[in-house]
């Protein structure tokens, strides 16, 4: 099947990528699943969106997606951020698949920076867009060196870095892209999700796939796999907490965005996961600013 452009100058395959490229990516995905947390090098292709804008996630999604899939795309937890809209429109066009904003309805969810609040189910696939897949990169810029560290499971440098934070600040100063250890072997970058989302990766029912296009790496966490955030006995890992509930739906224990309301310091906190927030409001939940904000949004 090919998808033609109007003037016949150029034609593209189903889901954009050619079959040889898909096979190459599919092989990398299988090895990634077989070696959880290990970054499989792959010959990443140029995509019709810029590197750094989700080309890794898009290549993974394009290689796994089929006509029966239902795709959800989020950026910052939201379905309607411009890049999420753009990627969703891309797949609707080149793969002619059904898209959704409902977490529960999606078979594939491509995400940048968040994991949905709603617990993912068996059979769902979460595809992460990853800018810098190497968790050790900011401690050691050389790939040749970090590769050796992973080979030897030599992660002392990472612990030293985290401990220096504690010595300097009294706590670990990493708030997103917080490193995890997968199945007691590979230290892995969870992509720049807030560390709030790290616990959701642990023993998830869903398959988690990670694509880094510019850095040319694919990695994976199978369902029911141990994913543990690095920490110390005396300084256990802890997630962010918010003092107030979502101003729109009243949810607690979810990740909130701070929204500036005016130039006099007025602000509110609302769910970063827009689908979750909308569902709650449909179910009758109301936050303290729900009425006003709803009007303001129209």
């Amino acid at each position: 099947m090919t998808i033609g452009t109007d003037d016949g100058l150029a034609t593209y395959n189903f889901a954009y990528l050619d079959e040889q490229t898909k096979r190459m990516i599919r092989r990398a995905i299988l090895k990634g699943i077989a070696i959880p947390g290990y970054q499989v090098p792959f010959a990443s292709r140029e995509m019709p969106m810029p590197y750094g804008w989700g080309t890794g996630g898009v290549q993974v999604t394009a290689s796994i997606i089929g006509p029966d899939d239902v795709l959800k795309v989020i950026d910052q937890g939201a379905d309607d951020t411009t890049n999420a809209v753009s990627i969703r429109a891309f797949f609707a066009k080149v793969a002619d698949v059904e898209t959704t904003t409902e977490t529960a309805k999606a078979s594939i969810i491509q995400t940048r920076h968040r994991i949905p609040e709603e617990k993912l189910k068996d059979g769902q696939i979460l595809v992460y867009q990853v800018p810098i897949p190497e968790p050790l990169r900011f401690l050691e810029p050389r790939e040749t060196e970090t590769r050796k560290m992973h080979a030897l499971a030599e992660y002392g440098l990472m612990h030293v870095k985290l401990y220096e934070d504690i010595a300097k600040n009294g706590h670990i100063a990493t708030t997103y892209a917080y490193p995890v250890k997968v199945e007691d072997r590979y230290v892995m970058d969870p992509s720049p999700t807030p560390k709030f989302d790290n616990p959701k990766m642990h023993m998830s029912d869903a398959l988690q796939l990670f694509g880094a296009g510019r850095e040319k790496r694919i990695y994976a966490v199978p369902p029911h796999t141990k994913v543990v955030s690095l920490d110390f006995e005396d300084y256990p890992f802890e997630i962010q907490t918010f003092e107030e509930p979502c101003a729109m739906c009243g949810a607690q224990g979810v990740y909130l965005d701070e929204v500036i309301l005016d130039d006099r310091g007025g602000r509110m906190f609302v769910c970063s996961d827009t689908d979750y927030c909308e569902k709650r409001r449909e179910d009758g939940h109301r936050g303290h600013l729900a009425g006003d904000a709803m009007e303001a949004a129209e």
């Binding site: 810029p50 590197y51 890049n83 920076h113 800018p131 720049p192 510019r214 965005d257 701070e258 970063s272």
Partner: peptide
């Protein structure tokens, strides 16, 4: 192509991470 993509990706929303910071 790689460089311009990654430099320019800083235009994309980062408010979830910024909130954490």
């Amino acid at each position: 192509v790689q460089a311009t993509g990654f430099v320019e990706h800083l235009k994309l929303p980062h408010y979830v991470d910024f909130q954490a910071e």
